[in-house]
């Protein structure tokens, strides 16, 4: 189903439709994540991916034209590149342990330690929260830095536009 929506996104040329499909895609992704036991990630994906992304995409579409031009370029090369890379990656994943097995390498690393010691060391029953805020707190600090920088970037880019818009309006008045 996720794959069907993705194909629709590729084919849809009207950008408003694309945005709506992207939202549907995000919600489907969130449901898949719940099935995969990643409830925290699913919650974030539903609110951030389906919520905030949609809002900023729609805000952008409000500022620019909403139909996509028909491209004259050849589509063969991108298709070949995508299929080639995909085949290579599928071949690579065959070496991974089968889906859902408990004795995979990933479950022998730090994961079990987080799970067994989280109550004793942090007092938080949700292991995702304790790892995010305690064990890997510096990651979260870095994440906030990235968001802060992106926020500054967006503000600088859009503030300049608003100022120019005002001068143009002033020029029309005279």
């Amino acid at each position: 189903m996720l794959a069907v929506v993705t194909v629709a996104i590729v084919l849809q040329r009207h950008l408003f439709g694309v945005v709506v499909l992207t939202t549907i895609y995000s919600f489907l992704m969130a449901s898949v994540l719940i099935v995969l036991d990643a409830v925290d990630v699913a919650m974030t994906e539903a609110s951030v991916g389906a919520g905030i992304s949609t809002v900023i995409l729609l805000a952008t579409l409000h500022l620019i034209s909403t139909t996509e031009m028909r491209s004259f370029r050849t589509k063969v090369l991108p298709l070949v590149v995508a299929i080639g890379t995909g085949a290579l990656l599928v071949w690579g994943t065959l070496a991974l342990p089968p889906f859902g097995t408990a004795d995979a390498i990933i479950h022998k690393h730090v994961g079990p330690r987080y799970l067994s010691d989280t109550i004793k060391e942090t007092g938080v029953p949700n292991a995702v929260t304790s790892v995010l805020a305690d064990y890997r707190g510096y990651d979260t600090l870095g994440e906030t830095t990235v968001i802060f920088t992106a926020g500054i970037g967006v503000m600088l880019l859009l503030r300049g536009m608003r100022r120019r818009g005002r001068t143009e309006e002033g020029g029309d008045g005279q």
Binding site: L36, D37, A38, V39, D40, L96, P97, F99, G100, T101, A102, A104, I106, H107, G111, Y114, L115, T118, I119, P125, N126, A127, V128
Partner: peptide, 12 residues
């Protein structure tokens, strides 16, 4: 890869 069949979300 983090999913274990029969496991639940990591809330102790």
């Amino acid at each position: 890869p983090g999913k274990i069949i029969g496991g639940t979300a990591p809330i102790i």
